[in-house]
Amino acid sequence: MKPVGAATGRILVVDDEEINRLILANLFEGTYEVDEAANGREALEMIEADPERYIAVLLDVMMPVLDGIEVLRHLAPTGYMGRVPVFLITAERGNAVMEEAYSLGVMDSIGKPIVPYAVMKRVQSVVELFEARKRLSRTVEDQRLQLLDRAEQIIELNRGMIESLSAAIEFRNGESGDHVQRIHDITKLMLTQTHLGDGLSSEDIDDIALAAIMHDVGKIAIPDAILCKPGRLTPEEFEVMKTHTVQGAELLARIPQMRSMGAYRYAVDIARHHHERWDGRGYPDGLAGDQISIWAQVVSLADVYDALTNKRVYKAAFTREESLRMIRDGECGVFNPDLLACFFEVEPQICALYERRTAVASKPGSPEAGADVMGK
């Protein structure tokens, strides 16, 4: 290695003739620091020890131990020559050698005997081009990371606003807002732990779980006298309560920013259809069977389970055993048999989830699922 003054990087000169290495080292003195290798094996060991060390490699063809072409064959699969320019030094002008060298990724060839001025200009030009490309790549990558960071911040902000809006609706009738978080967790658990989520990506499931939080958003349009009534609704009041499904879907559709979110299409569907029933006796559209999306079905059952197992202003919480019996016996509406089988399969995990939350605080929820229990 030759220490130099104002060097702007380090190059590797690979040649079995010491005089050639000396000529090139002197040529680049003051411009680059220079490491030397006497054969291809030494060169590979130096490169592999620190792949980021060099900004250029000048490689002789005819060498003992490992020649230049063999070095190129080792480097080509690693992508090294896409990051660092390699110049072939050779007196050999045979088409076969040069054709293979270029096919392996050599940037340029330097003929022997060496013409110092020409070599200096060619190497400097290519090195500057590669370094400029690296700077541009770093700039692009920095900008990409900044954009991703901003996008994540926006996503978190949107999620926070969605959760706050959904929780605020729960607060209107004296509930804590934990209901929407439990619905989120149950929905995600059922789609990840059973075959109900087959065909859905993890991103899809995250979007559906987020959409589940917004299932009752339409209740913002329901008068307090009905929404907060501490008892059974009259038939007329129940008809008003039922409109929260349509109101919710329409409200979400009127928010332009929602349309760019992956959760949007799920949210609109869930808000409108989470009170549909397998036998077609739900509302607002009277959908039956597989006309109801699987995510709306999952949220519907999660909603009922949460309503049964938690205290409401109009009822005490049912025990876990009684709640499961009511769901199994169809007292809270008719559900897809396959959905029920999956639900009972993972219900112990859901129960454990509730117990963890209960250890922190009491868990009131939305009156929505109680629609099937007390006319809401």
Rank of each mutant, 00 (worst) to 15 (best):
S166L: 07
D306N: 12
T243L: 12
A6M: 12
R320T: 08
G174Q: 07
A271Y: 04
D329P: 10
R144L: 13
G40F: 00
V106T: 01
N20L: 02
T245S: 13
E321C: 09
I292K: 11
L308T: 01
Y80Q: 04
S323A: 14
V180W: 00
Q193T: 13
L88V: 02
L165Q: 05
L12F: 03
R144G: 03
Q297A: 10
S202M: 10
P116C: 01
A209G: 03
P223Y: 01
R172K: 10
L24V: 10
H274P: 09
Q124M: 14
Y80D: 04
M98D: 01
R93W: 07
K2V: 14
I183K: 03
R259F: 09
F318D: 06
H274A: 06
S164C: 14
V34C: 05
I110V: 07
W295S: 11
T139A: 11
M261S: 07
N158Q: 15
L324T: 07
G282P: 06
K242M: 09
G79T: 04
G177L: 06
A56N: 06
L353Q: 07
T309E: 05
Y354S: 10
R150Y: 09
K134W: 11
C228M: 15
R135Q: 12
S323K: 05
L340I: 03
H184I: 10
A118R: 12
V268N: 00
M120R: 11
I350Q: 00
T78A: 08
F87Y: 04
Q247W: 05
P223F: 04
I114V: 15
V240Y: 05
M261V: 06
D50N: 08
R277L: 11
A211C: 11
I350V: 15
R254F: 05
F344V: 01
E276R: 03
L75G: 04
P77D: 00
H275V: 08
E239M: 13
Y117I: 15
A307C: 13
D198R: 03
Y54G: 00
L252P: 02
K112L: 05
